[in-house]
Design a protein around this nucleic acid. Structure first.
Lengths: 221, 221
DNA sequence: TAGAATATGTAACCTTTGTTACAGCTTATC
DNA sequence: GATAAGCTGTAACAAAGGTTACATATTCTA
């Protein structure tokens, strides 16, 4: 009986979280369905959700936290593509689910993250059944396309110092903290450059009073 | 009466072209609807279909030819994103239509191109009504996302000489000719670099016997 | 056919970014 | 507390790509 009450309270919790994040998008009937078939998950920071080459069997709806999406080339060189936040889903996942193809990206929890996993059969069914779901999926594709465009703008048109500053500001937005817990090497991986280059540019940003450097931490002013 | 027969023959022509390019995707009922509401257009090479910042009122279904899709930054610097070919549609357009937002890209006919323009109200209606249409739209988003990823790979991980060679090979695929009618300056625009750099690299590709240079023409070996 | 416009080739130089090497410091581990 | 591992700073150099300048060749146009 204790277990029943416990599980029951988790379910109630989940529908409440769903309503908070997706209540303005979906009708109650759909929220109920999501609640029925979805699996609530809490992901710790730095946990790898999806690895390149993996097949994907379900899609995530973000409740809280943030996920960073990375691209990697054949030599193992990385590049940060974008962050997913509350109310987002992963269009790559959608894409891969529908096409039954392997993941082209890696997804890592940037923060402790709560999400609901939806089995792919359902998401196909819902695109026919719910107009709101369809619009959500389209909007999600749209957002991801726009973010990919932004990434292209960054690497094609901006120099490394500008990219670095934008990267730091994006991190502030996502983590909601001005003191970033990150090493120069980690930044270098995300921006696909070398640690020495990042150290150099960070130093010059510090001289411009835009940031303050500490060990394992960077303070954004 | 002559006019009627002429228009009639154009309509018959269009449904035939539609069936050739989209018959394997859509049921007859949908093909008929497309035929009813779509406008058949022949676009000459180099014609600008969409300009950055424009609002978009209809989406194109490609019948033949090719369209090149470009990004531009605030300083007017360009970058080629990808080509659209037969059976493709423009996911950016979809995206912009649904969101009622301005175009983020420029689209230029790479070859003489035939296409059918669909009013946006219809495309919304059809996503509810036809499963095949829905799948086409999803697949189209998927393809564009994959092409954007490829573009990101190119500019993030490859050096200019590799990018140039890939660019030339892509051109060969799209135009189906080994003699490309293009100037060094045009290539420089598409790859977002300078004419001098392209001339330099082309020369070294010529020395490697990968291409042969002529005035206004490049022969791919 | 002269002059203008366009296309290409190339040298010289500069800036940005990447690489190698090493020193000094902090934190973890035994 | 000694040693190892990890993080940061910096110098010196290399490579890629961007810029300026100018020469030459071809094509267009008046």
């Amino acid at each position: 009986m204790g277990l029943f009450l416990y599980l029951n309270s988790i379910l109630k919790l989940m529908i409440q979280e769903l309503k908070n994040s997706y209540g303005h998008l979906f009708e109650n009937e759909l929220l109920e369905e999501i609640n029925q078939v979805g699996t609530f998950k809490e992901i710790p920071q730095d946990f790898t959700l999806i690895e390149i080459g993996e097949y994907i069997k379900s899609m995530p709806l973000l409740i809280s936290g943030a996920i960073k999406v990375l691209r990697e080339d054949n030599d193992g060189d990385e590049l940060l593509l974008y962050f997913l936040e509350r109310g987002d889903t992963c269009a790559m996942t959608l894409s891969c689910c529908l096409g039954q193809t392997k993941s082209e990206i890696r997804a890592i929890a940037e923060l402790d993250t709560k999400l609901v996993m939806i089995p792919i059969q359902k998401m196909e069914e819902w695109t026919g059944k719910y107009r709101t779901w369809r619009n959500f999926v389209f909007e999600s594709y749209h957002n991801r396309l726009m973010e990919m465009l932004e990434t292209i703008d960054n690497i094609a048109f901006m120099k490394m110092d500008e990219r670095l500053l934008k990267y730091l500001n994006d991190k502030v937005k996502v983590t909601k903290e001005h003191m970033l817990h990150i090493t120069h090497q980690e930044i270098a991986y995300d921006l696909h450059t070398s640690r020495v280059v990042i150290s150099r540019l960070l130093k010059s940003l510090e001289k411009l009073k835009k940031i303050k450097l500490h060990r394992n931490n960077i303070e954004i002013l």
